[in-house]
């Protein structure tokens, strides 16, 4: 059980992305999360680590699983959790965001978890607020806790990340999950492949040091891990792919395509899934290959580890708040 261990894990007082993390910091978070996996499986899950701390979940974009995962993580660690869902006005979003930040700052939270539809929003808030900021997804930029929970899931199943071949498939262009995962997996020594139609691949994607495939069977050949991405509904109807049936035919994960992966390859999905679009139900529900439910469980543990790590850098009792 994680006792009141306060040796620092993170150098920064925020978690804005995988980009700023070292291998040591990532391993530290994953190791810490292992303890929380055990705790979460125990009957008594409550800790006092964050007692007296205020956690604000500020979500500008609808989210069920990430928001509830952070809420649960905060509550299990004893923090007071406030959920704020903010509807954005269409005009002067930047200004609204800074105004919101100023208002929130006056409420003196300790940790702010933020999701925003614009890339760079978490970083902007981090500059304006005195508290620790956790990026729970900013635009098409980063979603660091997702990448960490994916890494934890893989590490627990395979014992390592180094040397594994991971195919990330689908809407890479709009995906913050893909960006954070490419970053983390590459840092940890895994080999990353991207599989998508050209319309869903960002410009110069090969500069990430990944291999690019437009043919899914080729892209999945011999991989250890298949990470599927969600295709947003508004992107299916002709703008980026012509139809869902065509997408499923060429990029939906079914038994036939999965057969090209290494035997026993794991299938992951950040959720929520579009069954019959990017993944066949037969695969999604196959507990032999799909670790999708496990990812959700690891999500809570990773977020507890992140909150724990950030709390170690917060001003302690007896110190004056800045």
């Amino acid at each position: 059980m994680p006792e009141l261990n306060d040796s620092p894990i993170l150098l920064s007082r925020h978690l804005l992305g995988i980009d700023g993390l070292s291998v040591g910091e990532i391993v530290g978070l994953l190791d810490l999360a292992e303890d929380y996996v055990a705790l979460n499986r125990a009957v008594a899950k409550k800790q006092a680590l964050l007692r007296g701390r205020t956690l604000i979940n500020l979500f500008f974009e609808a989210s069920t699983r990430t928001q509830s995962s952070f809420e649960l993580a905060g509550k299990r660690l004893g923090a007071d959790v406030l959920n704020m869902s903010v509807r954005t006005s269409s005009v002067s979003k930047g200004e609204t965001l800074i105004d919101t930040a100023t208002t929130l700052n006056a409420m003196r939270p300790d940790i702010l978890v933020v999701r925003h539809q614009d890339s760079g929003a978490a970083e902007l808030l981090a500059r304006k607020l005195d508290c620790a900021v956790v990026n729970a997804g900013d635009g098409a930029h980063e979603h660091p806790t997702q990448a960490l929970l994916d890494a934890l899931t893989i590490r627990r199943r395979r014992g390592r990340l180094e040397g594994l071949v991971v195919a990330i498939c689908g809407d890479i262009l709009h995906s913050r999950v893909a960006r954070s995962n490419i970053n983390l997996l590459s840092k940890m020594g895994a080999r990353v492949r991207l599989v998508a139609p050209r319309t869903l691949l960002p410009a110069e994607a090969a500069r990430w040091g990944v291999e690019i495939f437009t043919d899914m069977k080729e892209g999945l050949a011999g991989v250890d891990i298949v990470m599927m991405l969600r295709l947003q509904l508004e992107r299916m109807a002709g703008a980026f792919v012509p139809s869902t049936r065509e997408y499923f035919r060429f990029y939906g994960l079914d038994r036939e395509k999965l057969a090209h992966a290494k035997p026993g390859a794991l299938v992951m999905h950040p959720g929520p899934m579009n069954r019959g679009v990017e993944i066949d139900s037969v695969i999604a529900d196959d507990i032999e290959v799909s670790v999708i439910q496990e990812q959700v469980e690891m999500g809570v543990a990773i977020r507890m580890a992140v909150l724990d790590a950030l709390a170690r850098a917060l001003p302690q009792e007896g110190q004056n708040a800045p």
Binding site: A237, G238, A239, P242, S243, R245, E246, R249, F250
Partner: peptide
């Protein structure tokens, strides 16, 4: 494009 309308691409793969 569907219906030659210049808006929505067709199912080229299929």
């Amino acid at each position: 494009t569907q219906g030659l309308a210049g808006q929505v691409m067709t199912e080229m793969g299929l």
